[in-house]
Amino acid sequence: MEAVLRLAVRADGPAVAELARASVLEVFPAYRDAVQTVSAAEHITTLDTALIDDGPGVPLSKASGFTEVEAAQLPMPDSTVLAGVAMERPIEETA
């Protein structure tokens, strides 16, 4: 089966969350203890569907202090081109 790269849709949520959970359970034990691994598998693998619903994530990025620089085209390996937005955020230096 050949993988097809496409934008996620809300119906993909359960499959994406399960893949994330399986990844955490596979990788985390090399770096974290059992309690941290189980906690991560429960908490950080819950899919926030707002990340799917808002397209390129612009509202989330803006809320995190990023500003739009310019539109961007993101070519994928299968020749599909996804619309994106280049964004930037200043680094805050502390003394």
Rank of each mutant, 00 (worst) to 15 (best):
E93A: 09
A63E: 13
Q73D: 08
G13E: 12
V69Y: 05
S79I: 03
A40C: 08
L5I: 15
R10D: 08
E68I: 15
L47D: 02
Q73C: 03
E18A: 14
M87Y: 10
D78L: 09
T94Y: 14
K62L: 15
I91A: 09
D53Q: 08
G65W: 14
T45F: 09
R10F: 14
L5V: 11
V27C: 07
R89G: 03
L19W: 08
D54N: 15
D54T: 15
L7H: 05
L51C: 10
A86V: 04
G57W: 02
R89W: 02
R32A: 15
L47N: 01
D78I: 07
E68D: 14
Q73K: 10
H43V: 00
R6E: 04
K62I: 13
M87P: 13
A83L: 06
R21T: 02
Q36S: 13
M87I: 10
V38D: 07
L7E: 11
P29V: 10
V24D: 01
L7V: 07
D12C: 08
V81M: 04
G57C: 07
A40Y: 09
L82I: 03
V58I: 12
R10Y: 10
Q36C: 11
D78T: 04
V4K: 12
E18H: 04
T80S: 06
L82H: 01
E93W: 12
V81I: 13
A15D: 12
A40N: 08
M87C: 12
L25I: 03
A8L: 01
M87T: 05
L25K: 02
E26L: 13
R89A: 07
L60W: 08
E68S: 15
V9M: 04
V81W: 02
S64D: 12
A63P: 10
P14W: 00
E42V: 13
A83I: 01
E18G: 04
P75M: 00
V35E: 15
E18C: 07
I52G: 07
H43P: 00
T46A: 11
T37S: 05
A83H: 03
